[in-house]
Amino acid sequence: MFDRPSSEPLIRLTTPLKEKDVLRLRAGQWVVISGTLYTARDAAHKRMAEALARGEDLPFDVDGQIIYYVGPTPPPPGRIIGAAGPTTAGRMDSYTPALLALGLKGTIGKGPRSAEVREALKQHKAVYFGALGGAGALLSQRIRAVEPIAYEDLGPEAIRGLTVEDFPAIVVNDCQGNDAYEDARRRWRKA
C-alpha cells in the first residue's frame, strides 16, 4: 500500500505476535498485519485498568495480541463496519505499560507515545504502530469480520475483535527505543 525502497521486502505480520516477530521490526518499516486486532480506546482502557486494580481478569487475554485504538462509525446496511481509522495513541499512554507487562505485543494508533511507554516497549519487547490517520474509509476495507468482545454499552468505544487482512501500518516505536516520527523530522527539517 505504501512506497518502500524496492530492496526491502514487504513485512507481513500475523497475530498473535511472537517475540521474534517483534525483535526484527525497526522504526520506519511498513508492515501489513493479518489476524485479529482488538479495539479499545479511552473508556475501554479505563475499565480494563479498573478491572486490573480489582484483581480481575481482562475481557480478553492480551498475551501476544495487538490493540487498535479505534472507535469506528456504525455499519450502514450491508457493511460490517463503518470508517475505522486510528485515534491519538497518547491518550492511552497512562494505561499502556500495565498491558505491555501482561504480554501485549503491539498497539496501533497515531501520534507520539510518552517516554514511559517507549521504555515499557523496550522492557517488554513490544512495538507501537502508526496507521493512516483520517483514512477511516480506506482502512475499513481491510477489515473482514467484527466480533463483540466486551463493554457493548460503550457503543463506539466497546472492545471488538477485528479480523483484518493486510492492514497497513508503520513501525513508529520499535523495541530498541527508536522513533520513526523523530527520525522523519530530523531527515526532512529545513535548517
Partner: peptide, 25 residues
C-alpha cells in the same frame, strides 16, 4: 507523497460510497 495519495483515495472512496471519510465524525 504516498500518504497524500492515500488520503485522496480515501476521500474519493468516502464520497463515492457515502461513508464517512474518518471515524471521528
Amino acid at each position: 507523497r504516498d500518504v497524500l495519495s492515500r488520503l485522496l483515495e480515501n476521500a474519493a472512496l468516502a464520497a463515492e460510497q457515502g461513508i464517512p471519510m474518518c471515524q471521528d465524525t
